[in-house]
């Protein structure tokens, strides 16, 4: 609700409002510097908003940060993992600190291991992984404890075509099972493929928010890129 963030005089996010519905993939799209990451960081309780407020599952970000953290799972942009741990140790470590129930931890670990698709390589240290492998591991980590809301910041940026495709497919598959996603991307075409609804951001503001097809129709455009060019003018 009118979420805002000021970095020393610069309004990175300027009164942003949107609602993510349960079970959908909601995408923030916009060029670099639009304020997508800042918005996601506020929702992930990493940053505190300078103005406005937001609720996640009815919990206030500021007052119930601890409770919010139990419901969400956040994958930062360009994130890495502990390089000296093996992949499976990393998943186990994250399960251990995220979940209190031993059975749930085991289940999350098994799910994450399978989802990562890394097989035997999970036993090796993360520093030996390629960028694509690390990202798959991190995505598996993000969703393995079946969070109420998974927040993914630029999940495919910097990946090759094949790896990006696999990540997108995994997100769609999980969404089909009912998981809720809030993703960001600067790639308008990718967003068209994975998201149910899109918010187009520029300079800290949301310019439009709807399903991709509705947006294209409203602006009589072939794709979201054209919609953005139209809106940003």
């Amino acid at each position: 609700m009118g979420l805002g963030k000021v970095y020393g005089g610069l309004a990175a996010v300027d009164g942003v409002s949107f609602t993510v519905r349960r079970g959908e993939v909601f995408a923030l799209v916009g060029p670099n510097g639009a304020g997508k990451s800042t918005t996601l960081k506020m929702l992930a309780t990493i940053l505190t908003a300078t103005s406005g407020a937001a609720r996640v599952f009815g919990l206030d970000l500021r007052d119930d940060a601890e409770a919010v953290r139990r419901r969400i799972s956040y994958l930062p942009e360009e994130a890495g993992a502990y390089r000296n741990l093996a992949g499976d140790d990393y998943l186990r470590f994250m399960a251990d600190i995220s979940l209190d129930d031993a059975g749930a931890r085991e289940e999350a670990f098994a799910f994450g291991s399978r989802l990562s698709g890394l097989g035997e390589r999970l036993r090796e240290r993360i520093k030996t992984y390629s960028k694509g492998m690390t990202r798959k591991l991190l995505l598996a980590r993000t969703v393995m404890n079946r969070p109420g809301l998974a927040i993914l910041d630029e999940p495919t940026s910097g990946l090759d075509v094949l790896n990006a495709f696999e990540i997108r497919r995994a997100v769609r598959a999980l969404a089909a099972e009912g998981m809720t996603f809030l993703v960001s991307s600067h790639n308008m075409l990718e967003v068209e493929f994975i998201s149910d609804r899109v918010a187009i951001m520029n300079r800290g503001r949301i310019l439009a928010c709807d399903t991709p097809s509705a947006l294209k129709e409203a602006h009589r455009a072939r794709n979201l890129e054209d919609v953005f060019v139209e809106l940003a003018r």
Binding site: K41, A44, T45, I46, E66, R69, R70, I72, S73, Y74, L75, P76, E77, E78, A79, G80, A81, Y82, R83, M94, I97, S98, R141
Partner: peptide
Amino acid sequence: KENKTLEILLSSPVP
């Protein structure tokens, strides 16, 4: 901080 593992850690339910 550099690897952003801190963001992951601090957005997790750990005091």
